[in-house]
Amino acid sequence: MREGLFIAFSLFTIAAASGVVLSKNPVYSAFSLILSFFGLSGLYLLWGSTFMAMIQILIYTGAIVVLFVFVVMLLNLQVIRENSPNLLFVGVVSATVWFFSLIILRVLTRAIPTNVTEIPTNQLRTISKLLFTRYLWPFEVLSLFLLVMIVAIFAITRAQEISHGGEKV
């Protein structure tokens, strides 16, 4: 049962991922990406990692792919696509490299000691407890990080406006 589900989810993910690369229409690519994320979250469910499965869909599908679709819509990427170079060679090379590095990783991790903690049953509670106790300080630094990124993006875009002589918002 587990094996069968694993193979089914994996094949589904791979098929959807190839859809991302192969489809000519960028909107179809984005939607295939959503499908492949669903497949991934199914894999997480199989490993008993419910929280990760949920987050995978919420964040990647809910936020990131929607952003992709917005960008595709705003930029009208059809035009760009006609001029894009043929990336088949790059794709094949990187896929080969990743395949071999996965094999190497498999060899390396064969000797993983078992002192990595088991996946707990109530994951949300465990993670939030860690975030607000042991890892509170890195978590706080994360908020600084987001703030700095907002300022940085503001600085870049404003510099762009000025140098293009565009009107200021």
Binding site: F145, V148, V151, A152, A155, I156, A159, Q160, I162, S163
Partner: peptide, 15 residues
Amino acid sequence: ELMSLPTYVLVGIER
């Protein structure tokens, strides 16, 4: 990361 990412931006600040 908090140190590096603003640095990348600062390098290109003069458009």
